[in-house]
Design a binder for these strands. Structure first.
Lengths: 188, 188
DNA sequence: TATATACTGTACCTATTGGTACACATAAGG
DNA sequence: CCTTATGTGTACCAATAGGTACAGTATATA
């Protein structure tokens, strides 16, 4: 791993926080510059296509994190129930028990989503499909598995909206618990 | 009803569509001007405090619509089950069966939400509380009613996120059906 | 019809926007 | 030590941002 890659990744993480706070259109280069500590020179060195490339990189990075830490476990054909349990744990960790929002969801609702439609679409499709597959393998019928998968992803996203709106992260943890309970095979 | 009020309300509705499409920061005055057909003169006549007042007016307008068409029916102590059924119908109509997003939810996740925190908070609190009250009156225990109310509002918001993300409005109608089924007293 | 009030178009302002150019620093490899 | 790569700070740019000023046009009411 060369030095460049490592630092570009640090830049991505820093820029992500700015987008999380201000949205895409709301994140001016000045804001990005100040909150990341990176000058324009560095920023345009890592992201030659400017702001849009920054956003693409950030969304790809989040997607990759979920691919690796969530979807992969769900696709593990050996232990579907354990994969689902791992998903709930990773999701709770990632969203800091409701204190963080989902950048993909925010971009989907927000300004100028067109350039990012594909990444957003893929993220939610992968998630729902991987979860449905896992549920299928735990013994649910295909339609029931698909319905439950959609219910879980919908619930997580909705809970993030409500947690932020009501400034009450507990909405998120409560919802996660409720969704967990709805899947009998993983009741602990 | 004087002419002024009527036209200001038309302006609000037109501006709302722009915010729905581009978000707050993403809606430039030029974009608002062009998409609404209103010149800066008119815009600043109706909203002397500029863009922020436009957004406040829009959010207040949406809130008022829900207050009148949704929360009011829920608070009707005569027929709680019918009030809940009316809520589902109004919600389905308002969000155009999943083709429209919730501006309050979008602003909650999006850029510069601070100035609008109060309206957003009130909207979701009113909704959840009115629904919980109605469920209580249909015979559920208080904790069960509160849980179900949260589940419904969370589900609606999450479904809007997913419907937009996957460009599939059916996610919304399916979710609405599923939530309806979960409330035994209104099963049709 | 006179007049006050509601509404609108245009010209203009300054600050900030995203983006570029480029000299410079830094460090590793030969 | 020289060269090549990667990384960075600064000055600069045209375009656009949100906002203001104000003269002008409708319109309602008396």
């Amino acid at each position: 791993m060369t030095r460049e890659v490592a630092e570009r990744h640090d830049a991505i993480a820093a820029v992500a926080e700015v987008f999380r706070e201000h949205g895409y259109a709301g994140s001016s280069l000045t804001a990005i510059t100040q909150q990341t500590g990176l000058g324009k020179g560095s920023l345009y060195h890592f992201f030659p296509n400017g702001k849009q490339e920054m956003a693409e990189a950030v969304l790809e990075d989040v997607s990759a994190w979920f691919e690796e830490n969530v979807f992969l476990a769900l696709r593990d054909s050996e232990a579907p129930a354990r994969g689902i349990e791992q998903m709930f744990e990773a999701v709770d960790r990632y969203f800091r028990s409701g204190e963080r929002i989902c950048l993909l969801g925010a971009f989907a609702l927000g300004d100028s989503r067109e350039p990012f439609e594909r990444v957003i679409h893929r993220y939610f499709s992968s998630w729902t499909e991987a979860l449905a597959e896992a549920l299928l393998r735990t013994g649910f019928t295909a339609p029931k598995a698909a319905e439950m998968a959609e219910e879980v992803v919908v619930g997580i996203q909705g809970a993030l909206v409500l947690a932020r709106s009501r400034q009450d992260p507990q909405v998120f943890t409560r919802t996660l618990q409720r969704l967990r309970r709805r899947i009998p095979t993983i009741q602990s």
